[in-house]
């Protein structure tokens, strides 16, 4: 950091409890983090707030996973809700597979949102994306299997 980043802006001393001036380093015991709700403090008890951009990016990633789960959930519901001429013994397991996949995705993405935020707070490496990769692979396999089922029973026009 440059010399002027490290100093306080003249005439604007940092008050305890106020957010940092940009570029000002955080001291571990100084209460200059933004005020946090009880819920946030309970879930993220230690470390210090990461860059705002990373927190927002983590949020968007979580929401993207949720939308992925919603697409799967919607597919499973639509299979069961609308009479598509698919025999029940194929349709119902397919619907259940879709909804279960959505369930795994949404549960995992909740935990992942928290682990990533915690890792950023503690300045540790981000959790391995292994589970994310497993989910993506499983998702692709499930999609191919379902497509194969549909084609084999003449579901495709």
């Amino acid at each position: 950091m440059s010399q002027q980043d490290q100093g306080l802006t003249p005439g604007q001393p940092s008050q305890p409890g106020q957010p940092n001036q940009p570029g000002e380093p955080n001291e571990p015991n100084e209460p200059d983090q933004p005020p946090r709700s009880w819920l946030t403090r309970t879930l993220f008890p230690d470390g210090e707030e990461p860059d705002a951009r990373f927190t927002l990016a983590n949020e968007r990633t979580f929401l993207a996973w949720i939308r992925t789960g919603l697409a799967l959930l919607g597919g499973g519901i639509a299979l069961e809700a609308f009479a598509l001429g698919i025999p029940t013994d194929v349709r119902t397991p397919a619907a259940i597979i879709l909804v279960l996949t959505a369930l795994v995705i949404s549960a995992t993405s909740l935990f992942r949102w928290r682990s990533v935020e915690l890792a950023m707070r503690r300045k540790r490496p981000l959790p391995a994306p292994m589970l994310t990769v497993v989910l993506t692979v499983g998702l692709s396999v499930a999609t191919v299997v379902l497509l194969a089922i549909f084609v084999s029973i003449g579901g495709a026009p």
């Binding site: 940092n20 933004p34 707030e49 927190t55 959930l73």
Partner: peptide, 25 residues
Amino acid sequence: GINQGVVEPATSAVLVVGGGMLLLE
């Protein structure tokens, strides 16, 4: 948050959406 460098994560909204999603499933 962007202006000041840090922002509090939207914990309650995330939990509500995630929890609502699990319930719906």
